[in-house]
Simulated assay, not measured.
Amino acid sequence: MKPRDLFMALLIVTIWGANFTVIKLGLADIPPMLLAGLRYVFATLPAIFFIKRPNISWKYLALYGLTVGIGQFSCLFYALKIGMPAGIASIVLQAQPFFTVIFSAFLFKESLYRLQILGFAIAFTGLYLIGGDTSGVPLPLAAFLLTILAACFWSISNIVIRYSAIEATQKQEKLDMLAVVIWSSLLLPVPFFLLALLFNSPQELLSVVTNLKPSSLAAVLYLALGATVFACGMWNILLSKYSPTKIAPLSLLVPVTGLITANLVLGEQLSFWQTLGGIIIILALLVLNFKSLPWANAFKAK
């Protein structure tokens, strides 16, 4: 990989890792569902006028938006609002690959391999250590469970994308993930604003929007333009230039950058057992992605 592309990949995983801290900062002044809705407003406009709609049916766009948008981010944003630490959230959300493997095995009749089962066992050990220890950063049970549910919704969205890719292939086209993100985002602001009305009055929401602080606006723009449009767009460009086996493993750095950012900006300090749980989950991700890692070939039979 060229040094410039490697730098871009590291920048992207840093943006995605810091995403959790930025959400936490944004939630200081903006209710969770309103923040999510504003994120998708700015993620859609004006990008939708420049990016062609992906050639897949609207049902897949709607299902993707429902799962990765409404499902994942409503759970994640609310979890962070009620006390989920940003750093731990960046780790726990990485449970999504394990759910994805389970759903794929059920829906596509794919076999589970020993390495995958080992990865599951290691990951659940890490989740148990993080969720069961209260001596470090306070971790409300409801917030912890909502973050796991967010990971579950994210994994379901991966299944939707797989079906979408199959449909695109049948049309002899390649699925443009940035286009999927942008056009599915078009469907999300209104549902999020309706959800916001369940938690806050119209007057409260209007007051927040009309009195939006510069720091809050910066958080919204970061989530929409930085973490969504820029990071997703550049990630797709890298995937078009290099094999996924070279690019995908770099996403394992997201929880690392998430923890570092939460520590530097929010002052989050993890206990020994929470730290160990995080390391164990990252180890589980390495096991699950072993065949994709650069050094995997060294273990193949000669």
Rank of each mutant, 00 (worst) to 15 (best):
K2S: 00
K2M: 01
R4Q: 08
D5I: 03
L6T: 01
M8C: 02
L11H: 00
I12A: 00
V13G: 04
W16Y: 14
G17V: 01
G17F: 09
L25R: 04
L27C: 06
A28G: 04
I30N: 11
P32H: 01
L34A: 05
A36I: 07
A36L: 12
T44P: 02
P46K: 00
F50S: 01
R53T: 13
N55W: 15
I56T: 07
W58T: 10
W58I: 03
Y60E: 03
L61G: 13
A62H: 02
Y64L: 05
G65C: 11
V68E: 06
F73H: 00
F73E: 04
S74V: 13
C75T: 15
C75R: 14
A79G: 03
A79F: 11
P85G: 03
A86T: 05
S90R: 00
L93W: 08
Q94L: 15
Q96D: 15
F98Y: 04
F99P: 12
T100G: 07
I102E: 09
F103R: 08
F103T: 05
A105I: 12
S111L: 11
L112T: 15
Q116V: 10
G119S: 15
A121G: 10
A121D: 11
F124M: 05
T125K: 03
G126W: 09
Y128C: 10
G132R: 11
T134N: 08
S135H: 06
G136S: 06
V137Q: 03
L141W: 09
A142L: 12
A143D: 10
A143R: 08
F144D: 02
T147H: 05
L149D: 14
I156K: 13
S157F: 04
N158L: 14
N158I: 05
N158W: 09
I159G: 13
V160D: 13
R162G: 11
Y163S: 13
I166W: 11
E167V: 11
A168K: 07
Q170P: 09
L175Y: 06
M177V: 01
L178N: 04
L178D: 02
A179F: 06
A179G: 10
I182V: 10
S184N: 13
L187V: 13
L188P: 03
V190I: 15
L194F: 10
L195M: 15
L198M: 15
F199C: 12
S201V: 10
Q203P: 12
E204M: 14
L217A: 08
A224C: 01
F230V: 00
I237P: 03
S243L: 02
T245E: 14
T245G: 11
A248D: 02
L252E: 06
V254Q: 01
P255R: 01
P255H: 05
V256M: 00
V256S: 03
T257E: 06
G258L: 10
L259V: 03
L259Q: 09
I260P: 03
V265E: 04
V265T: 06
G267D: 06
E268D: 12
L270Y: 11
F272D: 09
W273G: 05
W273Y: 06
T275R: 02
G277S: 12
L286Y: 05
L286D: 07
L286K: 09
V287T: 09
W295R: 08
N297E: 14
A298Y: 07
F299T: 02
K300N: 10
A301H: 15
A301E: 15
A301K: 14
